[in-house]
Computed example of a mutant assay.
Amino acid sequence: MPRCRRSLARWIPQMTSVVIVGASGFGRETLDVLEAMIAAGSDVEIAGVLDDGPSNINLERLADRGISYLGRIDDWIAHADVSVQYLVAIGNPVIRQMLCAKFDLAGFEPFTAIHPTAIIGSRFVTGAGSVVCSGAVISTNVQLGKHVHVNPVATIGHDSILQDYVSINPASVISGEVLVESYTLVGAKSIVLQGLTISEKCTIGAGAVVTKNVPSSKVAVGVPARWS
């Protein structure tokens, strides 16, 4: 009988415990993604949420949905089991990278979360720690780097590449064969036309239409998008 139990144990899937970093809007949207994955049968459990300065209203919102607030990031890292995986749900790409570096240095592994309602094309590749939200559409041969955020109902066209720590905000459209370099944030309902490159550390304003390549560290706004 003990031999039988050991044999069966090898077939029992291991539950992945995930902690979310960030109690604000995107943190709770990331909770939605994880809860939808769990409802769809993923072997995931939510350990709780970390935040160095959560507002009272966000703490109440977590409590209302039965999610534990686990305290400050450094305090938790100092005592937590490294088997828990992490998701940094902070919209600012630079801050996101700084926080990810803390977890990586301490030996934690990032978790990748994709909402079951996202439409994912063939030959899709994503780096660890990325989040793809509900209603997102990702076409064929798309590559996401590490810790990329694709917000609700955003569209990523065929053969596009989003490098590490890119944020694509809600309802944005990245056309085909676009390169979005690291640490760039694309604002809500903006459009990037086909074949363009948005260089690193750019911000594309909400509703902008990008019609030409954008140099690094620019803030591009308007229709068509302009920068100084």
Rank of each mutant, 00 (worst) to 15 (best):
R3A: 12
R5N: 09
R5L: 15
R6D: 12
S7G: 13
A9F: 13
R10G: 13
W11S: 12
M15N: 11
V18S: 01
F26T: 09
F26C: 04
G27L: 10
L31A: 07
D32N: 03
V33Q: 02
L34A: 11
L34D: 06
L34M: 12
E35K: 06
A36C: 01
M37I: 00
I38A: 03
G41K: 06
G41C: 01
D43I: 07
V44F: 10
V44L: 14
V49M: 05
V49Y: 03
L50Y: 07
L50V: 09
G53L: 06
S55K: 07
I57V: 13
I57G: 00
I57A: 12
E60R: 03
R61I: 04
L70S: 08
L70K: 06
I73G: 02
I73T: 15
D74A: 14
I77N: 08
I77R: 00
A80E: 05
D81A: 02
V82D: 12
V82F: 01
S83Q: 11
Q85G: 03
V88Q: 08
V88G: 00
A89C: 10
G91A: 15
N92I: 13
V94L: 10
I95D: 00
I95W: 08
R96Y: 03
Q97Y: 01
L99N: 05
C100D: 15
A101L: 03
A101Y: 01
D104E: 14
D104K: 08
D104F: 11
E109M: 09
P110L: 01
F111M: 11
T112E: 07
T112L: 03
A113K: 00
A113Y: 01
T117C: 02
I119W: 05
R123H: 14
F124H: 07
F124D: 06
G127N: 04
G127H: 03
G127R: 05
A128W: 04
G129Y: 06
V132R: 05
A136K: 01
V137Q: 06
V137W: 04
V137G: 00
I138A: 06
G145V: 12
H149P: 09
N151L: 09
P152L: 10
A154P: 12
H158S: 03
D159F: 04
D159Q: 12
S160R: 09
L162M: 10
D164K: 02
V166A: 11
E177Y: 14
L179P: 03
L179F: 11
Y183R: 05
L185M: 14
K189T: 15
S190Y: 00
G195A: 08
I198W: 14
I198G: 11
S199D: 15
E200D: 15
K201E: 11
A206G: 15
A208M: 04
V209I: 15
K212N: 04
V214A: 00
V219G: 06
A220C: 14
V221C: 05
G222H: 06
V223R: 02
R226L: 07
R226H: 09
W227I: 07
S228Y: 07
